[in-house]
Nucleic acid binder design. Structure first.
Length: 273
DNA sequence: AGTATTTTTCCTGGTT
DNA sequence: GAACCAGGAAAAATAC
């Protein structure tokens, strides 16, 4: 009764994560539990430069800072190098945010070793990537996060010239239910196109305009994350509409499935205007 | 334990 | 007719 359109969803999922690349590496993640991390993600020493930047982004988001708070150039390194930085190095590279980053990476290094035993991160340090706790039982959906190795992507040094005086880290505590809000979840899908082929795509990267390509599939993913198997795009979109008032999203009329990030959405820009 | 936020659920009605 | 879009209303889930 609650199933909207299985046919459509099936086809969306099929085209998105077709059988071609389903479970390429076998059952790396225990399908029994909801795993929060997958091997390479949980072990910073194996991160690529790209993943290091992802991590930076996530930590900033969690602590409500925007991307201009840290000179990303100072972290132009892979996970191995990152892990060898000292506390002082972090201070030098990130100023007042150094301690936060240091704490975060330390925690991650530590828990990474035990992730086999399914050790969960402390909630406040959960900058885990976009789809950590979305694990689909075999045969159901292909979970992109199960791809242990991200494709070769370089940090796109287009112009990370985000230099600005540190906006003093005065904790702007906000609500953060379950680690991620819907809009952040959506944003993170956009920021990780390699792992999420064809779910949502940028229409205008600079303006923050994007479009859902597989609306029901995204809803399913969101539902999985919230442990709600009856999530639909209909319901997800209602939540999206509430963002208009808060200016996290701006209305884009006329175009179906198209949304635009608003002034209160952070962390989606390639570089700060 | 209680309040504020955010999301979910359901719905009516309109549009593409 | 299917799939969306707009919001109102109210309940549920979370955060603090």
């Amino acid at each position: 009764m609650s199933v909207t359109s299985t046919t459509t969803l099936d086809s969306q999922l099929a085209t998105t994560w077709g059988p071609t690349n389903a479970y390429p590496d076998g059952p790396l993640v225990m399908s029994g539990y909801t795993s929060r991390l997958w091997p390479h993600e949980s072990q910073p020493q194996f991160w690529t430069k790209y993943q290091v930047w992802e991590w930076l982004q996530q930590v900033l988001d969690i602590h409500q800072f925007d991307a201009s708070s840290i000179p990303f150039q100072n972290f132009d390194m892979d996970g191995h190098q990152l892990c060898s930085l000292s506390y002082q190095d972090f201070i030098r590279a990130a100023g007042s945010l150094g301690p936060i980053l240091f704490h975060s990476i330390t925690e991650l290094k530590w828990s990474g070793q035990y992730q086999i035993g399914q050790l969960e991160l402390k909630p406040e340090l959960d900058y885990s990537c976009p789809f950590p706790d979305v694990s689909f039982p075999p045969g159901e959906l292909y979970d992109p996060s199960l791809h242990s190795l991200p494709p070769v992507v370089s940090p796109t040094p287009s112009s990370p010239d985000i230099k600005r005086s540190f906006s003093r880290p005065h904790q702007v505590k906000k609500h953060n239910p379950r680690g991620t809000h819907l809009w952040e979840f959506i944003r993170d899908i956009l920021l990780n196109p390699e792992r999420n082929p064809g779910l949502i795509k940028w229409e205008d990267r600079a303006e923050g305009v994007f479009r859902f390509l597989k609306s029901e599939a995204v809803a399913q993913l969101w539902g999985k994350k919230k442990n709600n198997s009856s999530m639909t795009y209909e319901k997800l979109s209602r939540a999206m509409r509430y963002y208009y008032k808060r200016e996290i999203l701006e209305r884009v009329d006329g175009r179906r499935l198209v949304y635009k990030f608003g002034r209160n959405a952070r962390g989606w820009r390639e570089s700060e205007k």
